[in-house]
């Protein structure tokens, strides 16, 4: 669906177009907000399928209730996130479980349970807090930029490589499980996964090189500014 004519419109105008029945405006809003909504839903439900259902319900709600959006009450992103958060919590409750504690899970190694991670960290004498310290703004910006680079690379990757990397790193399937799931020879799966991993590592390496170059330029500029200050 072509959304280019809507690129220049702000969210409020797009919502108005949705209220007038424009599917293209809805698609433009999807493109603009889906990453954040999916990530939020995924963090709460910890389940890809549930998170995708939350995304679908959120945009269906936007379509059905576009007239109710009041720009004076807050941003569209906040409105959509509120819908997604409530839908996600509903799903977690319906499944009879609490939202996963992400900070602890992030501290865990691959395939290590929360309990295992807790025991391991506690055994080291390290204090286990309720939440992780927020990253400093620079780290957060770099992290967000890196994630976006990986997302872009995934979007441009051949489908067969994207499929194996998602099954390996999202579903935590072994190479033989992926081969069985996709009906491909194990050798093909390994080759494609390795190629995909190398491709993504290449993206990361290029990103970090750019960041280092940027930092170097900044440091040089700062040093030059300091030198100029000193000469006055």
């Amino acid at each position: 669906m072509d959304t280019e004519p809507f690129d220049g419109l702000d969210d409020a105008n797009l919502v108005r177009a949705v209220a007038d029945g424009s599917h293209e405006a809805l698609a433009a809003l999807y493109d603009r907000h889906v990453d954040g909504i999916f990530a939020a839903a995924r963090r709460i439900t910890w389940d890809r399928q549930a998170a995708e259902e939350v995304v679908q319900e959120t945009f269906l709600a936007l379509w059905n209730r576009a007239e109710l959006y009041d720009r004076n009450a807050g941003s569209l992103a906040a409105w959509l996130h509120a819908i997604a958060r409530n839908r996600s919590i509903d799903r977690v409750r319906a499944a009879g479980r609490r939202p996963r504690l992400v900070p602890l899970a992030q501290a865990a190694h691959e395939r290590e349970t929360d309990e295992g991670a807790f025991d391991r960290i506690a055994a080291t004498g390290t204090t286990v807090g309720g939440s992780a310290l927020p990253p400093d703004p620079e780290t957060a910006a770099i992290s967000a930029g890196t994630t976006q680079q990986i997302r872009d690379a995934l979007a441009e990757m051949p489908e067969e490589e994207r499929a194996v990397i998602v099954l390996a790193y999202d579903q935590d399937l072994s190479q033989s499980e992926i081969a069985s799931r996709l009906g491909w020879p194990i050798g093909t799966v390994k080759t494609r996964t390795r190629r995909a991993l190398r491709r993504l590592r290449g993206v990361l390496a290029a990103t970090f090189e750019d960041d280092e170059e940027g930092s170097r330029v900044q440091r040089t500029a700062s040093a030059a500014a300091g030198s100029n200050d000193g000469s006055r």
Partner: peptide, 22 residues
Amino acid sequence: TIRQAVQLTPDPGLRARTLAQV
């Protein structure tokens, strides 16, 4: 980093499915 990015990235096919559901 790749694992985190992959986990938080929606499937490209979700767009068409969402718009079709709407």
